[in-house]
């Protein structure tokens, strides 16, 4: 499953990333294989995602969230 498919209120574990160009940037922001990720909400127009990762709040675009593989 991808980061863009996870449903609200559930916790997932990050497995790896599909796009290395996005992955380097996500890693810097604290998205790590093994990190716990949950979706808090989507943006009003649905194209951006508000995540909580390791207790930090971070917003990603849909394509950025798609690069995250979760369990």
């Amino acid at each position: 499953m991808r980061g863009s498919d996870i449903s609200k209120g559930h916790h997932y574990k990050i497995k790896n990333f599909t796009d290395s160009n996005i992955a380097v940037k996500l890693l810097i922001l604290g998205f790590m294989p093994g990190s716990v990720i949950s979706l808090i909400r989507k943006s009003p127009f649905g194209g951006a995602y508000y995540f909580e990762v390791n207790g930090n709040r971070i917003a990603l675009r849909k394509n950025e969230a798609q690069a995250i593989v979760v369990d």
């Binding site: 943006s43 009003p44 127009f45 194209g47 951006a48 508000y50 917003a59 675009r61 849909k62």
Partner: peptide, 13 residues
């Protein structure tokens, strides 16, 4: 401000 950016990013895109 970062919330504003989050809310309107897709619209502005």
């Amino acid at each position: 401000m970062s919330r504003v950016i989050f809310m309107f990013d897709d619209l502005m895109r």
